[in-house]
């Protein structure tokens, strides 16, 4: 894995500068059934295709951002700093 990722601040950088935090998930909220909780904590869609995921520019500007990446080709279609929603899941 050696693709390039475009940090919204720093531009195109090698992927090893970043921390991968996995898919953007949907948090169920403070009250959840065990099933909702388990889905959120343990299950991932793991799509073969374009996926929204969290990245952190650890050895750079230390910014969290969302990338849209094709998991089949590692092509990164878009990166953005999501607008904070105040609630659990960024849109």
């Amino acid at each position: 894995m050696s693709f390039l990722l475009t940090c919204p601040h720093c531009g195109s950088r090698p992927v090893d500068e970043f921390r991968y935090q996995g898919e953007v998930t949907r948090r169920p909220g403070p009250v959840a059934t065990l099933r909702e909780l388990t889905d959120y904590v343990y299950f991932r869609d793991n799509v073969a295709g374009v996926q929204r995921e969290w990245w952190y520019h650890r050895t750079g500007c230390k910014t969290w951002f969302v990338a849209e990446r094709d998991t089949r080709t590692n092509e990164v279609l878009r990166t953005l700093i999501p607008a904070p929603t105040g609630v659990a899941t960024p849109q």
Binding site: R19, Q21, W54, Y56, R58, K62, W64, F65, I81, P82, A83, P84, T85, G86, V87, A88, T89, P90
Partner: peptide, 12 residues
């Protein structure tokens, strides 16, 4: 720190 920053990227 990364954990704090991450949640605050969500909450703002």
């Amino acid at each position: 720190v990364e954990w704090f920053e991450w949640w605050n990227a969500i909450w703002g």
